[in-house]
Design a protein around this nucleic acid. Sequence first.
DNA 1: GCGCGTTTTTGCGCTATCGCAAACTGCCTG
DNA 2: CAGGCAGTTTGCGATAGCGCAAAAACGCGC
Lengths: 236, 236
Amino acid sequence: MAKVDTSLVAHLPMFAGVKPDDLDEILREARSARYPRNTAIFEQGADAQSFFLLLHGHVRAAKTTPTGEQIVVRYVAPGETFGLAMAIGAAHYPATALAVDDSVVLIWPTSAWPRLVERFPALAANTMQTVGKRLQESHTRILEMSTQQVEQRVAHALLRLANQSGKKLDHGIEIDFPISRQDIAQMTGTTLHTVSRILSGWESQGLVESGRQRIILREPHKIVVLAERSPDSGAA
Amino acid sequence: MAKVDTSLVAHLPMFAGVKPDDLDEILREARSARYPRNTAIFEQGADAQSFFLLLHGHVRAAKTTPTGEQIVVRYVAPGETFGLAMAIGAAHYPATALAVDDSVVLIWPTSAWPRLVERFPALAANTMQTVGKRLQESHTRILEMSTQQVEQRVAHALLRLANQSGKKLDHGIEIDFPISRQDIAQMTGTTLHTVSRILSGWESQGLVESGRQRIILREPHKIVVLAERSPDSGAA
DNA sequence: GCGCGTTTTTGCGCTATCGCAAACTGCCTG
DNA sequence: CAGGCAGTTTGCGATAGCGCAAAAACGCGC
């Protein structure tokens, strides 16, 4: 198997406080793999046999209800881990992971985790931070869903995506991977119809430029205002 | 300070895999305190100087928006930890903790945490599990808020409370601490008015019996059906 | 036992958002 | 280059749930 270059991952939060030699040892336990766009990496409910670190591309983690509806749990950006089921004591993946763009990942077998944590306590600490951060983000999302209306939630969602995976252009910030109205609906707890209407509205105000699975924020600053305005203030 | 009886807490998830002598040492670092009903234990945004284990009573963790709206993050039952901000790398409490009933807690200084996890790795592992579980619960909650309507969410919320803190009576299951319509609204992302209407409806169908800050599930089984029925099925 | 503050109930209009259906667009395939 | 398909837009009701306001019920303290 091709050796992974240590210097490429040494700075990631996951490996903070890990000595170079140790990192080398950790990486030796991993293999890498490539997933083309629109291929599943793992399915909700499957045995959690591996955990992952995304090197390139973008991955969507989504949860499906018994009746088939989906919500997007999060989008994974390069440098982030996913599929950490075992770290939190789950035997099965609680969500489905899909490569939304051609993606390259490092894969460790779940079975290696206990040994790694024991030898490199920093790994455990870092993972704890990561999971904790995600917990807080979830709470924020719940708060938003409880107190804000759809337009504000969509604004927040896009700003987060821009922040996480935005590509600066001279005429705005482009979200750097294919994302549909449906996806945004599933991130904000609404329907693709409503998202479409909102984006159409913004487009006619020059706030965004958007096409098929493509969104560019032209006026991020004004979208921030939308995201933060209180339930009643201002209108068109 | 009164010594805490080891045998009372040894079986808790937090101390799984910790040897009795070690447990003794851990407990020596804690002090206990009593909070009367309706007193704050810590406030959102305050320095996370301590973390807690609830021994008796019930604690509500709630998050407040800049505009003053609140949501209930969770209710803490005896045996559970709360205020773990530091474990997840947060310097400030992300929520407010309020004793909703006379409560007794164990309190460790945040500063003791690094030493404790180093000496007793099982603590770190157990905490990881706990935080992971809460993350999954949050995701479930987001899923529900996205896909179910209010009545179903209220049904689920009450069933969870009954499960966590239900007291079996011969005529049903009583939720064992004071909880208002407003509280339930803040758990499910709706308004107290809507919760009141729903409970009135259930009451007239004999599904629940409720009063001021008091709820008894008379027909848990039928409420389960309500919670699970798909968006369109059956009606009155 | 009475008065008071809090919680709960309920009526009534309002509207944000859904849900369905149909038309449209742009891309990719053959 | 034509055809087909996935994604998007938009119109038009329908409605779940909100928000306000007022009344009622309850439990508490004096």
